[in-house]
């Protein structure tokens, strides 16, 4: 912490606040990963860390480095863009893979494929 001697109060407070918020959200998200009961509930939990959690830590990093180095350090924007683009893609791929595997096993917690054009192949009297 030797470089940060000349940090003004507002920047230090803002950085501290954003760091705690970001890390707290990441912890809540990962805790939800442990706590929630089935896979489709659990897949919602890490989104907390990947949206607002990493977002606030990136803003904290940008504020801190910009103030301490007396210039705009905004290359954290690259990670922001990367997270915005990649998180939905990974989660969608994972959800589709899980849906595919559950359907293959005939699990009853997932809905069947939608077939409005063809007549329903479910038995009527059940």
């Amino acid at each position: 912490m030797t470089q940060a001697v000349d940090l003004p109060d507002w920047a230090a407070l803002l950085t501290a606040f954003l760091l705690i918020v970001g890390a707290g959200l990441a912890l809540i998200g990962s805790f939800g990963l442990l706590r929630l009961k089935n896979f489709y509930d659990r897949i919602h939990a890490p989104t907390l860390g990947t949206t607002l959690g990493i977002g606030s830590i990136l803003i904290a990093s940008m504020v801190f480095h910009s103030v301490t180095q007396q210039r705009f350090v905004i290359h954290e924007l690259l990670i922001t863009v990367l997270m915005v683009v990649t998180t939905p893609v990974t989660l969608m791929l994972l959800a589709r893979a899980a849906l595919f595997r559950d359907r293959l096993e005939g699990s009853d917690i997932v809905p069947p494929r939608y077939q409005s054009a063809r007549p329903s192949d479910k038995p009527e009297n059940q």
Binding site: Y40, I43, H44, T47, L48, T51, V84, T87, P88, L91, M92, A95, R96, L99, R113, Y114
Partner: peptide, 12 residues
Amino acid sequence: TATPGTLWVEYD
């Protein structure tokens, strides 16, 4: 998908 609490699972 980016909004916590909702997830796009499949498109037909």
